[in-house]
Each structure stands twice: as C-alpha cells, then as structure tokens.
C-alpha cells in the first residue's frame, strides 16, 4: 500500500488482496498512546533477569545498556511485567492527567 494517509488511498493503489508488502509497517503505530499506566523499574532491586522482557506480549520492553530494562513507545501499560517480576521491582504508575 502507498505511504499516503489511509483516508486518501485510492482503490488502484491497494495491492491485490490488500496484502501489505512492506515488512514491519506496524512500527508506525505508536500503541504506547493507549496506555493509562506504565511500569517503573526500581533499579536497586532489579536482578536483570529479563523475565519482564520475556513476558511482555507487545514487545514494549527494551534492554538498556548495562542489562537493565525499560519500556519503549509500544508499551500499552497492561501490567503483566509488574505482576510477573521475580523481585517485585516493577510498579505500575498512572499516566499523568
């Protein structure tokens, strides 16, 4: 599909079968907009085990330099990481109003 905004695409510009030929096009969707809360890591209690990274269903956690973890722009704020954290170092904090 063309890179035009969706509401300007003509039928001729849509690929046969509405197939999306550009890999990773979902990167353009900033799903982080959806969250009403986000995880905050307390580094002093983090053992850098990576369980949070493993259980995140959305690829919303990235590894930082030094082996610690933090959320990225795709975190939807579901809270699974906080629930599963081995040491309990993650807490969910409401988005600011």
């Amino acid at each position: 599909m063309s890179s035009k905004p969706m509401d300007q695409v003509t039928w001729q510009e849509i690929e046969a079968g509405a197939i999306l030929t550009e890999p990773g096009s979902a990167r353009g969707y900033n799903t982080g907009d959806w969250r009403s809360q986000h995880p905050v890591w307390t580094k002093s209690r983090c053992i850098r085990c990576g369980v949070c990274w493993t259980v995140c269903p959305e690829g919303g956690i990235s590894e930082e330099p030094g082996g610690y973890f933090d959320m990225n722009t795709y975190c939807k704020g579901c809270g699974i990481c906080a629930k599963e954290c081995v040491t309990g170092c993650i807490s969910m904090v409401p988005e600011e109003e």
């Binding site: 969706m6 509401d7 695409v9 003509t10 039928w11 001729q12 849509i14 046969a16 509405a18």
Partner: peptide, 9 residues
C-alpha cells in the same frame, strides 16, 4: 477509511 476501496479493487 479504506474498506470501501479494498472492495472496489
């Protein structure tokens, strides 16, 4: 925004 265009195709 795009379903109609897909159907037209």
């Amino acid at each position: 925004e795009v379903y109609t265009e897909v159907k037209m195709g």
